[in-house]
Simulated scan of single mutants.
Amino acid sequence: MQLDNAPLPSIGILGGTGALGGGLAFRWAEAGLPVTIGSRNEQRAAEAAARISTGIKGPHSLNSAGLNECAANADVVVIAVPWDAHQETLTQIRDAARGKIVIDVVNPLAFDKSGAYAPSVPEGSAAQQAQALLPDSHVVAAFHHVSAVLLADHTAETVDTDVMVLGDDLESTKTVQELVRLIPGMRGIFAGKLRTAAAVEGLTANLIAVNRRYRTHAGIGLTNVEEAAHATA
């Protein structure tokens, strides 16, 4: 399997011990990509990689490392850490992520007695904060509305949802769209520049409300968009 006639990139998932990061690690490793799970706690990363590997059919490459080693050795870096660790993690891996595509999947969320809501972020959004902290990387926002439960479900052959992909470097967004497509059932849809990421990140609070009310794992579906459409302008 190749990515647009090029070798598959290696993926480093920072926060791969969590639900969403672990789900992405499972799906991409099963699709044939070399994946490394990165964590501050290398023992936790190793345990997560071993646990995820048991559910993968066939040969695969799924390893573990510390945060800096994971970012340094990956072609594409995924930020899947909790929001309260976002800024510190990005600052730590700035040099290791230089020149690379960095996929930020983080949703800034807060909770009170009325439920989930999107708090104010000084830079505008998590993705914009990432780009400000990683000026020499190509930050792409994606995977904000994907159910971690479905991603990690070994019995679910497909994850039928659209993924809104946002970024200022169009070649990088195209690469991420193709990475989305490697997960059966998913489509990567270009949805704008990073300055619009706050709306996409904030929508997650609404999906949490949907999931609680209807006891489901809702995703996003975009109508009237061609299957293979990539950003061209």
Rank of each mutant, 00 (worst) to 15 (best):
D4S: 14
V105K: 00
V121A: 13
A65Y: 03
D153V: 03
L14D: 03
N224I: 05
A130Q: 05
G18F: 02
I208F: 10
Q43C: 09
V200F: 13
R195C: 12
E171M: 11
L14Q: 06
S39N: 11
Q131P: 09
A218H: 09
V102L: 02
T196A: 15
G58K: 09
T173L: 13
I11T: 01
G21C: 04
E42C: 11
D112T: 10
Q129T: 15
L170I: 13
G66I: 02
A71S: 11
T216D: 10
S53L: 12
T158C: 03
N73A: 15
V78M: 08
I103G: 02
E88K: 10
A71C: 04
T158I: 07
A48C: 09
P59I: 00
A152S: 14
I79T: 04
T161C: 11
V105A: 08
I101P: 01
V105P: 00
E226N: 11
S125Y: 06
E226K: 14
A148V: 02
P119E: 08
R195H: 10
A130K: 01
M1K: 14
G15I: 02
E157T: 14
A142W: 00
N224L: 12
A142I: 03
A72T: 09
T216C: 15
G221V: 13
V146I: 15
S147M: 01
A46K: 11
E30H: 12
V106Y: 02
T204H: 05
L62T: 04
R215Y: 01
A31Q: 12
A19S: 13
G185D: 05
W28N: 10
D162N: 05
A45V: 06
I13H: 06
R40Y: 01
A48W: 03
L134H: 05
G23D: 07
A72F: 05
A152K: 08
E157G: 10
D95K: 10
G167I: 08
E42M: 14
A80M: 07
N5C: 07
S64R: 02
A48F: 00
N224S: 15
L67E: 03
I101E: 02
T54M: 13
N63F: 00
R187I: 04
V225L: 14
A74R: 05
T204C: 07
E227V: 10
A80E: 00
G66Q: 08
V81H: 02
H60R: 01
S61E: 07
T232V: 14
K113T: 10
G16R: 00
V140E: 04
I101K: 03
H138S: 14
F190N: 06
A198T: 04
R98A: 15
D168N: 15
M186G: 03
A141S: 15
Q131A: 15
I13E: 04
H230N: 13
A74P: 01
L170G: 05
A49G: 09
A126W: 00
V165F: 12
A19D: 10
L62A: 13
A132F: 04
I103E: 01
R215K: 14
M164L: 15
S114W: 10
